[in-house]
Amino acid sequence: MSMDRRRFLGVAGLSALAIAAQSSLAALARGRQGAGAAEAPAATRWAMVIDPKQCLKDEGCTDCMAACDKAHNVPHFPESAHEVKWIWKEHFDKAFPEQGSLYTAEAFRDRPILVLCNHCDNPPCVRVCPTKATWKREDGVVMMDWHRCIGCKYCIVSCPYGSRSFNFFDPRPRIKELSPDFPTRTIGVVEKCNFCEERLAKGQRPACVEACREKALVFGNLYDPASEVRELLRTRYTIRRKPELGTNPEIYYLV
């Protein structure tokens, strides 16, 4: 079969396209690795391991939530529509919808599981924020700047874990006991768990971790091979919430 000029050009063009596509894909793949490598030198990556079995020893216990509320001036709205939640209990089949088979999860089904912001490695909320009012710190804490938030609520829409709350009303009158060392929020901004970054700065562990009598919450540095969290991840089987979404949550649950 002879090849006329038009056909030759067509084939040549297609091959060029294919080569270009291949090299750009390779560049993309490299770019991803590159980004990971650039983050590696950071010495710290905070993470948490939750042991539901320990937590469920006393189902009515609210110590960790109370400690968090007090430390961060979290307001209490009685109506569920306007609730503000940093760390709270969710039914197992809501926290892990994909694990909700009728029999396998019998031990946990309908029982409360502690949930909080996952401080994702690839947080969708950070991607969508139009003002950089939320961002991921080098040590993995997904931070918020309440001075800058315009209250568009796009981060709430993008969060697959329901970890973000909006201040539908002025929160201050709804705070039981004001802690002067931490600000309250103003009306119309979004808020969420900050991994107690104000305590981390002082070398303390998060308030919820410290408040737990059953030691069900373990907090530590993922980049330190000797840390307690790494020890648990090495020796026990853990699951994370909705890992299939590629957000890479840094809150692990022991099975």
Partner: peptide, 17 residues
């Protein structure tokens, strides 16, 4: 200034508690 919408006047807490 809007500082006090969020930051707490320490006196306010003393008075209320």
């Amino acid at each position: 200034p809007t500082c006090w919408d969020c930051h707490i006047d320490p006196k306010l807490v003393q008075r209320s508690t």
